Amino acid sequence: MAEGCANAEIGRRLFIGESTVKTHLLRNFTKLGVDDGTAAVTSAMRQGLLDQ
C-alpha cells in the first residue's frame, strides 16, 4: 500500500484474495486510529513501522 499498489495487486503479491486484503487493511486502520490508506501510511511512517 505504501508503494501505491491497488488492493488487487497487494493480494497477488501476498497470494491472498482482494477481500482478504481489504479486511486486513480495515483492521490495521482501526489499530492505527485512521480512516484511510493515506493516513495509515503516514501514521505507520511516523511510528517507525515503515521506512521513510
Rank of each mutant, 00 (worst) to 15 (best):
Met1Lys: 05
Met1Trp: 05
Ala2Glu: 09
Ala2Pro: 05
Ala2Gln: 00
Glu3Trp: 10
Glu3Gly: 09
Glu3Ser: 13
Gly4Leu: 04
Gly4Met: 09
Cys5Val: 01
Cys5Pro: 05
Ala6Cys: 14
Asn7Gly: 10
Asn7Thr: 10
Ala8Phe: 00
Glu9Tyr: 09
Ile10Thr: 09
Ile10Cys: 09
Ile10Phe: 06
Gly11Asp: 05
Gly11Tyr: 03
Gly11Pro: 01
Gly11Thr: 06
Arg12Pro: 02
Arg12Asp: 10
Arg13Leu: 14
Arg13Ala: 12
Leu14Asp: 15
Leu14Phe: 15
Leu14Ala: 15
Phe15Met: 00
Phe15Val: 08
Ile16Arg: 08
Ile16Cys: 11
Gly17Val: 08
Gly17Trp: 05
Gly17Phe: 02
Glu18Gly: 02
Ser19Asp: 13
Ser19Lys: 14
Ser19Tyr: 13
Ser19His: 14
Ser19Arg: 15
Ser19Leu: 11
Ser19Thr: 15
Thr20Val: 00
Thr20Asp: 10
Thr20Ile: 12
Val21Thr: 03
Lys22His: 11
Lys22Arg: 12
Lys22Trp: 00
Lys22Gly: 10
Thr23Asp: 14
Thr23Met: 14
Thr23Cys: 11
His24Met: 15
His24Asn: 13
Leu26Ala: 12
Arg27His: 15
Asn28Gln: 13
Asn28Ile: 06
Thr30Pro: 06
Thr30His: 12
Lys31Thr: 08
Leu32Arg: 01
Leu32Asp: 02
Gly33Met: 10
Gly33Ala: 10
Gly33Val: 04
Gly33Pro: 05
Val34Gly: 01
Val34Cys: 02
Val34Ala: 03
Val34Glu: 03
Asp35Glu: 14
Asp36Ala: 07
Asp36Arg: 00
Asp36Leu: 08
Asp36Thr: 08
Asp36Glu: 00
Gly37Ile: 06
Gly37Cys: 09
Ala39Thr: 07
Ala40Thr: 02
Ala40Ile: 04
Ala40Gly: 04
Val41Leu: 06
Val41Cys: 03
Thr42Asn: 11
Ala44Val: 01
Ala44Gly: 04
Ala44Pro: 00
Met45Cys: 06
Met45Phe: 07
Met45Arg: 11
Met45Gly: 06
Arg46Glu: 07
Arg46Met: 03
Arg46His: 08
Arg46Trp: 05
Gln47Phe: 07
Gln47Tyr: 10
Gly48Ala: 05
Gly48Phe: 02
Gly48Asp: 04
Gly48Trp: 01
Gly48Ser: 02
Leu49Ile: 06
Leu49Asp: 07
Leu50Ile: 08
Asp51Leu: 14
Asp51Asn: 13
Asp51Arg: 09
Asp51Gln: 13
Gln52Asn: 14
